[in-house]
């Protein structure tokens, strides 16, 4: 599997990463090398094999729906890049 420049642009956008014009070729080549290595998987017959979701085949345990954490907004917001009145600030989203 070999990726083209526009594939990289699409993937980068989905991952919300910026890849500059002059990096596109080298990133495409690097990703293609990995995908080529991964390609070995396609030769394996996996007909009827159950996908392994958990090494111990455990199911998700449930706990009672009770509040177990206190509100620590001030502590958590003290490490935020930008806050105001208890809110996280981001650039304007709605015009």
């Amino acid at each position: 599997m070999s990726l083209a420049r526009d594939d990289v642009e699409k993937i980068a956008h989905l991952a919300r990463l910026a890849v500059s014009e002059d990096e596109l070729d080298s990133v495409a080549a690097g990703l293609s090398d990995i995908l080529q290595m991964v390609e070995q998987m396609s030769a394996v017959d996996t007909e009827g094999v159950t996908p392994m979701a958990h090494p111990l085949h455990m199911v998700q345990p449930l706990r009672p729906d009770r509040v177990s954490e206190e509100n620590q907004r001030e502590l958590f917001q003290s490490i935020a890049p930008q806050t105001e009145d208890g809110l996280y600030l981001v650039p304007k989203v709605i015009e």
Partner: peptide
């Protein structure tokens, strides 16, 4: 870049902030 961790300088919009 919203709640913690690195945030870029002067983001133009939300997508620019993320990317």
């Amino acid at each position: 870049g919203v709640r913690y961790g690195h945030r870029c300088e002067d983001p133009q919009d939300l997508e620019d902030l993320y990317k």
